Simulated scan of single mutants.
Amino acid sequence: MAEEFYKGGQRAWFHDQGHWGGFFHTYDQLQLKGFGAYFDQPRKIHVFLPRDYEVTGDRLPVLYCNDGDHIFFPDGDFGQCWQVAERLSRLYLREQLQKLIVVAICPNDRAYEYSHIPDQGGGLGDYSRYLAKGLKPFIDAQYRTQTDQTLIVGAAQGGLAAFYTATQHPRQFPQVAALSPSFWLGLEANPMSINGLDGAFKISLENSALVFAATPVLSNPKLRPKIYLDWGLMADAQHQEARARLRGQEMRSLLIEEFQYQENMNLFSLEDPLGRHDELAWGDRLETILQLFF
């Protein structure tokens, strides 16, 4: 049964789903002011804390996850989730991962918040500012965090949003993992209407608005984030994973050739032979990511 409490002036609910790895603080209506009419609206945030959080006094790294309604509970569009609580429980029990705090951010309007293209949403700039200047300071103030040990993660369009956020706010988000990222967004006239992959790559990623916006940070060795990219090799009906693979490979080459990233130093990439464009595949790959960064 959930128990109501207040933290930082925000109403939250303590609930314990019996996971060995921890328990939840859920803010159903977290409301942070000063970010414009849209982003001043309440949103749902899940915070997953290690079971011994209240007694250890340790400061912990923080994992921020886009698509927060798909991270812990199978209540998203497809009835799947990343199963992060179960995966953390296994990793902790095997002593394969240090304890951390997970913050799962549920979108109010995913298409708007996760797009940097004005005619395909366009709210990503404000969303990333909300995360960097609003949500992260709130979490750092209310929980015992290691403020410089932060990783932002997302998949598909949420992966694009994570990459964008880290390249716009690298001091707040110095590490990013973009799984099957939708780097093609804005580079196709209508990606859902394209038959197969014909015409999907007429505009290079190098000339995209995404890379243009990221260039100042990617070019600065003192600011550039540590980046992880991945994609699966299994086909899907809308060719989304094939797009993720081809644009991911293009981004990896661009980071190495144009921005002097070094593989296995500050750039990591993975091809998953069994990877599909779904939450279970992304959850499977998250275990490797967490061990890599934390």
Rank of each mutant, 00 (worst) to 15 (best):
F5M: 05
G8Y: 05
Q10Y: 08
W13R: 14
W13E: 12
G22N: 09
D28I: 05
Q31M: 07
L32D: 09
A37S: 14
F48D: 00
Y53H: 10
V55T: 03
R59P: 01
P61F: 11
G68W: 04
A85D: 15
L97T: 01
Q98D: 13
V102M: 06
A104L: 08
C106N: 06
D109Q: 12
E113F: 09
P118M: 04
L124E: 09
Y127C: 02
R129G: 03
G134C: 03
F138W: 12
R144Y: 05
T150L: 05
I152Q: 02
L160D: 06
A161Y: 01
A161L: 04
A162R: 11
A166N: 10
P170R: 08
V176P: 06
A177W: 11
S180I: 03
P181W: 13
L185N: 02
L187Q: 13
M192F: 15
S193E: 15
G196N: 02
I203A: 13
L205N: 07
L205Q: 05
P216T: 09
S219K: 12
Y228D: 01
W231G: 07
H239S: 11
L246M: 13
R247K: 13
M251L: 15
E257A: 14
E258L: 09
E271W: 07
P273S: 06
E279K: 02
T288P: 00
L290Q: 01
F293M: 09
F293H: 10
